[in-house]
């Protein structure tokens, strides 16, 4: 035994992967079984193109949601859209969405309708009461700064949105979106405008992802339709006052839903993950039950 044992007669006993036994092999012996436990790509998922496109639809529709919200804000600011119209429309959509959510929920519910109504009432009352404050919140800040801040916040919303688990939307992404909305809403002409805009923001950024998630869970066929509808609305809305922007958004959506999945599926071939007995074991159980 040793690093330099000469090539003598081949030992008759088979080599074993054990250290406690002195074996008649040199220390640098390489058996046929060397690396036999090596596994490659055991946890790699094989993606199918259209499945990935479907998932990418979620990202695309979230981007379009922001476009829809900006469109509404633009028309509010220009005065083409009255706050009462927006409020009535929001109420309509909210009731419609709530009904759909209930129907898809299949009877199982954690909260009573009364509790839902209570939350909605509390939120609306507070927003209504505070809207004059919010209206003047950014008066001392220059408009450019407010716009830049809103852009940053909406971008942060898009980046930090929990696309894998969209219900309820992650706290960072929701807060970023609402902060951006408050900034924008404070530039509107009246307190009622601000209130309408914030209610609308809540609808778009907080409640719509929940509904979409339920649609995806319970009625799979409807999810692509809903995503496509939002995308069309986003592009169409932007096109009505800024055609170049609409073109950019359209291209971005195209790249996002069609080109990026193609790239992912294509690059998947180059994946080379190595696994073996040297891997650190993972604790998969939930050990917190012993402490809670």
């Amino acid at each position: 035994m040793g690093a330099d044992s000469g090539p003598g007669a081949p030992p008759t006993v088979p080599w074993r992967k054990v250290l406690y036994e002195r074996q008649p092999f040199p220390d640098n012996y390489v058996d046929r079984r060397f690396l036999e436990e090596l596994r490659r790509n055991i946890r790699v998922r094989q993606y199918r193109y259209w499945a990935v496109v479907r998932e990418a639809g979620l990202v695309a529709q979230q981007l379009s949601c922001v476009a829809v919200f900006l469109t509404l804000w633009f028309y509010m600011e220009r005065g083409d859209l009255g706050p009462s119209t927006l409020l009535w429309a929001s109420l309509g959509f909210a009731l419609l969405g709530y009904g759909l959510y209930e129907v898809l929920g299949g009877g199982s519910r954690e909260r009573t309708r009364l509790a839902d109504l209570q939350s909605a009432a509390v939120f609306l009352a507070f927003t209504f009461g505070f809207s004059p404050v919010l209206k003047t919140l950014t008066e001392s800040v220059s408009t450019d700064t407010v716009y830049a801040m809103s852009a940053m916040m909406l971008l942060a919303h898009l980046v930090s949105f929990p696309y894998t688990q969209p219900s309820p939307p992650g706290s960072l992404s929701l807060n970023a979106a609402l902060f951006g909305s408050v900034c924008l809403a404070s530039r509107l002409p009246g307190a009622l405008h601000t209130f309408a805009m914030l209610s609308c923001a809540l609808l778009v950024f907080a409640l719509w992802p929940c509904l979409l998630h339920r649609l995806r869970d319970r009625a799979e066929w409807s999810f692509p339709c809903a995503a496509a509808l939002v995308c069309v609305a986003g592009v169409r809305g932007l096109a009505s006052f800024w055609p170049e922007g609409a073109l950019l958004l359209f291209l971005a959506l195209l790249v996002l839903t069609l080109a990026c999945p193609l790239l992912l599926v294509h690059l998947q071939r180059h994946k080379d993950n190595i696994h073996g007995p040297w891997d650190e074991a993972e604790i998969r159980e939930d050990l917190s039950r012993f402490l809670s």
């Binding site: 690093a3 250290l19 060397f34 690396l35 073996g276 007995p277």
Partner: peptide
């Protein structure tokens, strides 16, 4: 220090396994 460690090192450093000895 072990055969598993040898497999690991050979893979990590892309080595010829003949120049790697196992001494516990």
């Amino acid at each position: 220090v072990s055969y598993t460690s040898k497999e690991n090192t050979v893979l990590r450093a892309a080595l010829d396994p003949d120049i790697v000895s196992v001494i516990p």
